[in-house]
Design a protein around this nucleic acid. Structure first.
Length: 685
DNA sequence: AGCACGCCGACT
DNA sequence: GTCGGCGTGCTC
């Protein structure tokens, strides 16, 4: 189509001012009364709508008046299906292929080109990967506009970044580490990808800081570091405080103005380093050289909204698309990143043999048999060996006790038949600290007259013992010792080097000044028996995470069998080896990440409708009660997501059948039922 | 999702 | 002869 200069096409129909009834806005026909931009008067616009059938580019005309402002990346208001909606301009072209009269762009919300072409490409790639929509993803990538933040001046200060002497040495402690460091320092970022398992007794954020300095030292190019939570962000930002003036911090909890300001600092080149939580993986950074993702098994790297992207995988997509380096680190190692290593897409970095033998904790696994013979145990849960190690450790400094459950007695069962004890409302019973008797964890009703619905017994038995009850037990076993506890609901970040017993849930361990003199991991056996696919890799992550905090060669006691592969990995400090083994099992079983899968959720007829339209070579598991799983070979993953996108879009326009919910590569393929959210979960002080 | 257009029953 | 039912389909 030509630029609309033909009057027969573009005549404005002026409505009589005080006119008669049918004041219908011109639905079809050229509504543009004004001259169009002389060059490339067509804007390609992405509409802000989550509907799959609208997930494409729509063309609009650009008036001469808006010519300067309508640039790729700006936010605009356009009339769509009669209503004003917002969208992003993703391109300008001389002609349209729409084959129909175009409506004009009504308004440019801001001249700020927030959705850079690279970012638009990344967002589209992520949407495709997860069979989601552009607009669902772009919401995470570009924060809402804030006018005041836009009016500020943004300048990049002169600041010489210098690699410190110990920075080089740090990475020399990892296999392939020195080479990675050299490449980054020398500006070679294309195809530089590392998967990094942390060394014990060497703070991970200092390792990251060293690498960031190496990338920024040549005073060209930028870096992004993605961390699981805001506290980690503070920790690294503090470690790199000399770079404060060129660092943007992006976390979800900062207000709209701050968030947009930090985003603009990256966009306008006033920040060369972005440190943030998961959405920071999309941050605009001029000449991006490196993305670091730490602790990729942490759940908070998953976006909780559709299409449920994961920051690690977005980082991988971005690394490929933009040719920047990628480093994914963790206390242990995920099977996903192990696959990258085995495919040769990334290099494996792990502490060298010398580092391990000099610093790894000395692990003592307590067998089930040991525990049964353990007549000297202070209680059923506190084995004598653990007691001895704690006692010896307390002469030297703080001792960490990791307990997998928070609270006091978080789970109870029937004494007789061992079935979970339930309240009349269906909720599970538990006992909070300070509560003298058990109560329902959902509705809070006391369980004084509880009677087992199955066998009629009235006695309860503790199935799980939480941090607070454990603290009480240790308090009795170690009178006059300071007891500190920390759990997700009440986290303690640091403890001093003076002796204390520190009881914590996984992930809530305080960092000890100088490291823990001993580490004790309780109730470990049960963590390997959980039904989740991720149970053993999650256990590895938790245990390596605790072990990292120990002093070099400190004793570590764990109540799990020596023969368990995870325990073996801990003893040998070999997280890659464990991930390799776990990955081999998954390959054999045809599970993630060796395959790609989609979970379909919907009515059985709708699901079979979708399945009948899939032509990619696939396997179907299920369908069962409203959901089913489609599995394809890994290399067919993009075909699967592509077909599912098309199918969803096609079906959405039809009136027959309801939509089917599609989730690609979910964290746990089988969704668990979650208890209703009530305030009754954390009783007592 | 809205919001049209479109082709069959009861009303002035 | 007209108003209106909500089934089907499009939205630049």
């Amino acid at each position: 189509m030509k630029p609309a200069t033909d009057p027969s096409e573009d005549q404005l129909v002026l409505l009589p001012a005080g006119g008669k009834a049918p004041v219908r806005r011109p639905r079809k026909g050229p509504p543009s009364p004004v001259a169009l931009a002389p060059v490339s008067p067509i804007a390609q616009v992405r509409i802000d709508s989550p509907l799959p059938q609208l997930d494409r580019i729509f063309d609009y005309t650009i008036s001469q008046q808006l010519d300067d402002l309508v640039q790729p990346g700006v936010r605009v208001r356009v009339r769509f299906a009669g209503r004003l909606v917002t969208g992003f301009v993703v391109g300008r072209v001389p002609t349209s292929t729409a084959g129909k009269a175009l409506r004009p762009i009504e308004r440019v919300l801001s001249g700020e080109r927030v959705l850079t072409p690279q970012l638009a490409e990344l967002v589209a790639a992520v949407a495709e990967h997860y069979a989601g929509t552009f607009s669902d993803v772009v919401r995470s990538a570009v924060p809402p506009r804030h006018a005041r933040a836009e009016s500020l001046q943004y300048e990049l200060p002169e600041l010489a970044v210098e690699v410190k002497d110990q920075d080089v040495a740090r990475w020399g402690r990892y296999t392939n580490g020195a080479a990675l460091f050299r490449r980054l320092r020398g500006g070679k970022s294309a195809n530089t990808r590392g998967v990094w398992s942390a060394a014990p007794a060497q703070p991970w954020y200092q390792d990251i800081a060293a690498l960031v300095r190496a990338v920024l030292e040549p005073s060209i190019g930028g870096a992004i570091v993605v961390l699981p939570d805001a506290h980690d962000v503070d920790l690294l930002a503090h470690e790199l405080s000399e770079l404060r003036d060129i660092t943007a911090v992006l976390t979800a909890d900062q207000g709209p103005e701050r968030r947009y300001r930090e985003f603009l600092r990256g966009l306008r080149g006033a920040a060369r380093l972005v440190i943030g939580t998961r959405a920071a993986v999309f941050a605009p950074v001029l000449d991006l050289r490196l993305i670091v993702v730490w602790d990729d098994q942490d759940d908070s790297l998953w976006e909780p909204h559709a299409p449920y992207w994961n920051a690690r995988d977005v980082a991988a997509i971005r690394s490929s698309a933009q040719g920047c380096a990628l480093l994914v680190g963790a206390p242990a190692r995920s099977v996903e990143t192990q696959l990258w290593c085995e495919q040769g897409w990334a290099r494996s970095l792990a502490p060298t043999r010398e580092v391990i033998s000099a610093t790894a904790p000395m692990v003592r696994a307590l067998e089930q048999d040991d525990l049964e013979r353990d007549v000297a145990a202070a209680s059923a849960r506190l084995p004598h060996m653990a007691w001895l190690v704690a006692k010896a450790g307390l002469k030297l400094g703080p001792v960490l006790v990791q307990v997998p459950r928070r609270g006091y007695l978080p789970t109870l069962s029937c004494q007789n038949c061992r079935r979970p004890a339930r309240c009349a409302c269906g909720g599970l019973l538990g006992q909070g600290v300070g509560q003298s008797s058990p109560a329902c964890t959902w509705c809070g009703v006391p369980a004084a007259n509880w009677k087992c619905k199955v066998c009629g017994d009235t006695n309860l038995r503790a199935v799980a013992i939480g941090v607070e009850r454990t603290a009480e037990e240790f308090g009795r076993a170690f009178p006059s010792t300071q007891i500190i506890w920390s759990q997700s609901s009440a986290m303690r970040r640091n403890v001093s080097a003076s002796p204390a017993l520190v009881i914590a849930t996984p992930g809530a361990e305080p960092v000890a000044d100088g490291g823990y003199a001993a580490v004790i991991i309780l109730d470990a056996r049960g963590q390997l028996q959980r039904p989740q696919l991720q149970a053993t890799v999650e256990a590895a992550r938790r245990w390596f995470g605790a072990a990292l905090l120990a002093q070099p060669r400190a004793p570590l006691v764990i109540t799990a069998d020596n023969s368990e592969p995870v325990v073996q990995a801990l003893i040998r400090w070999d997280a890659p080896g464990f991930a390799q083994r776990e990955l081999a099992d998954r390959v054999a079983a045809g599970l993630l990440p060796s395959t790609r899968m989609a979970v379909l959720h919907g009515a059985p007829t709708d699901i079979s409708d979708v399945l009948s339209m899939l032509t990619v070579d696939h396997q179907v598991l299920g369908p069962t009660d409203g959901s089913c799983i489609v599995v394809v070979r890994r290399e067919l993953g993009s075909m699967l997501s592509g077909q599912l996108r098309v199918i969803s879009a096609t079906r959405a326009t039809k009136s027959t059948g309801k939509p089917v919910n599609v989730v690609l590569d979910p964290r746990e393929p089988i969704a668990k039922a979650s208890p209703p959210m009530t305030g009754a979960q954390k009783p007592g002080p």
